[in-house]
């Protein structure tokens, strides 16, 4: 697995020096910061239970846009850029297995995504002190929410890697991932709500319920509820799309 670790380190370095990464980070922290401040203000005005504060923050718009837009932007270059510039040739003629390349790139994207999220834990921790809430915030739901976010982002990033392996066009790769995310987050919800036949079929309802990844995150993980079937669904999805990415990469050798 040395090849995966080497790829991971190189990809993290690339993220660290990429202006796009910094732009995403700055925009996310700005929007998230304003949102947290306004939610905290509302909690103070309405004297809401401070323990509900962390869960309330995950329903904020920045979370949705972070999930919808960022995985596509982070993964668009993974393979599409390598193919566009031709560096895929130097990569694939190095003594490294294809699945190590896929794992290294996916892990790097996941770690960078996690790095974007982690500072918000510090913000929640700060809110425990006076003159903010001055209350003990329950960190159990926070951890659960982070687990859910990492699983969800892992799935979307795995799809992003797959989309990036299909084309040389980085923009197309990003759009494919965003469309896929939009489809996952909205389609199952709309189908379940409006198509009566589907709503009445138990298995179909269960399947669509599992596919509603953002709903699962906000209704379960963000409230501190961990359902093993959701965890298995996310992990299975990650494995499935990483496998497809590996297959796509290996098939390039056949071209």
């Amino acid at each position: 697995m040395n090849g995966a670790v080497t790829t991971l380190k190189k990809e993290l370095l690339s993220y660290a020096v990429s202006p796009v990464s910094w732009l995403i980070a700055v925009l996310f922290y700005l929007v998230r910061g304003f949102e947290l401040a306004s939610i905290a203000f509302e909690f103070a005005v309405f004297r809401a239970d401070p323990n509900q504060f962390p869960s309330a923050t995950y329903g904020a718009g920045s979370t949705f846009y972070m999930v919808l837009l960022v995985p596509g932007i982070l993964t668009m270059r993974c393979f599409a850029e390598e193919r566009r510039t031709g560096s895929i040739e130097t990569l694939m003629t190095a003594p490294i297995r294809d699945f190590e390349v896929v794992l290294g790139k996916w892990f790097a994207a996941s770690i960078f995504f996690a790095i974007l999220w982690l500072p918000s834990v510090l913000v929640l921790h700060l809110l425990e002190y006076e003159p903010y809430f001055g209350a003990d915030v329950a960190f159990g739901p926070v951890l659960s929410a982070y687990l859910g976010m990492f699983l969800l982002s892992g799935l979307l990033l795995a799809f992003g890697c797959f989309a990036s392996s299909l084309t040389e066009n980085v923009l197309l790769a990003a759009i494919m991932t965003m469309l896929f995310t939009g489809l996952l987050t909205q389609a199952s919800r709309i189908l379940t709500q409006y198509v009566g036949e589907l709503r009445n079929d138990y298995y179909m309802r269960e399947l669509l319920g599992k596919l509603d990844v953002y709903g699962n995150f906000s209704n379960w993980f963000a409230r501190g509820l961990i359902d093993t079937s959701h965890v298995v669904f996310y992990l299975g999805g990650i494995g499935f799309f990483l496998f497809l990415t590996w297959t796509s990469l290996a098939s390039r050798r056949q071209a």
Binding site: K10, L13, S14, V17, S18, T85, G86, S87, E89, T90, T93
Partner: peptide
């Protein structure tokens, strides 16, 4: 390789 495609940001 014929075209040396190396990562420009490193």
């Amino acid at each position: 390789p014929q075209e040396v495609p190396i990562y420009p940001d490193l």
